[in-house]
């Protein structure tokens, strides 16, 4: 436990001692800020039109603004998390520090878990930073807080899943670039694989939806918590953490 905490603390400090966390944070806020601005502009234009013609559409703050904000944050994080995690194991292997780390009396699991939680914490900070946008919105209207909490809970789970996955890609290689690229491509595929469901046989379609990060995420911005989705994310994280630990162990045996 002490070793886990030591690694968690070190990794977290390392994020904020190097430019990585700041660069990702700034880029993330700039892009999500743009989406927020575009969303709010569209929403105010639409509400003006709805005021004149109430029969046109039913306008709802959650569906037409917040859900979109959350979904766009999810897509930006798809790009961002591999950048956050690429360093975690690949750099240790490249610089040889892993040799020293593994000579300490700590388990491979503490190493992987310490790094995972550190990266998850940083991604949670990114997600939390978007509350600035909610804070701008709050004085102007009545906020659907409960749905918002569910959406953000889903976002955190998604982050955990993406961090665990790209941590695993970082354990596969010594090159940070390869780790990030592999993580990003595979996450993009996992995110979008559900979209193909209507185009293939129904049984295959169900499988694709079952595998897809995107399909399991889509209920959260609607304020719906489905235990299937919860189980999916928890198992997803568990699987890739397990694989990361195993990859690290295998490196010991092969090295």
């Amino acid at each position: 436990m002490r070793a886990f905490l030591a690694i968690y603390k070190r990794e977290l400090t390392a994020y904020f001692h190097s430019p990585v966390a700041y660069v990702v944070l700034v880029c993330f806020l700039a892009i999500s800020g743009y989406f927020f601005y575009a969303g709010v502009s569209f929403y105010s234009l639409a509400s003006l039109q709805v005021m004149q013609n109430p029969m046109m559409m039913e306008l709802n703050l959650q569906t037409h603004l917040i859900a979109q904000m959350v979904s766009s944050a999810a897509v930006i994080l798809l790009f961002g998390t591999p950048l956050l995690t690429m360093r975690l194991l690949a750099e240790e292997k490249k610089s040889g520090t892993i040799e020293l780390l593994l000579s300490y009396p700590l388990g491979d699991a503490s190493v992987v878990m310490g790094k995972f939680f550190a990266a998850w914490t940083v991604s949670a900070i990114l997600v939390a930073a978007t509350w600035l946008q909610l804070a701008l919105l709050a004085p102007m209207t009545e906020m659907p807080w409960r749905t918002i909490m569910v959406s953000y809970g889903g976002l955190l789970l998604l982050c955990g899943a993406m961090v665990s996955f790209s941590l695993w890609t970082s354990s596969l290689t010594e090159s940070q670039l390869v780790a990030a690229f592999l993580g990003f491509l595979a996450l993009l595929l996992l995110w979008a694989v559900g979209w193909a469901a209507p185009l293939v046989q129904p049984s295959l379609g169900e499988l694709l939806k079952g595998l897809s990060l995107g399909s399991h995420f889509q209920n959260f911005p609607k304020g719906l918590v489905d235990t299937t989705d919860l189980a999916y994310f928890v198992l997803f994280m568990g699987l890739f953490l397990f694989l990361s630990i195993r990859t690290l162990e295998a490196k010991r045996w092969k090295a």
Binding site: R2, A3, L5, A6, I7, T13, L101, Y104, P105, L106
Partner: peptide
């Protein structure tokens, strides 16, 4: 900072 990290990773309080 590094040496303290090593100590904690080796299981010291």
């Amino acid at each position: 900072e590094y040496l303290r990290f090593v100590g904690e990773a080796k299981g010291l309080a």
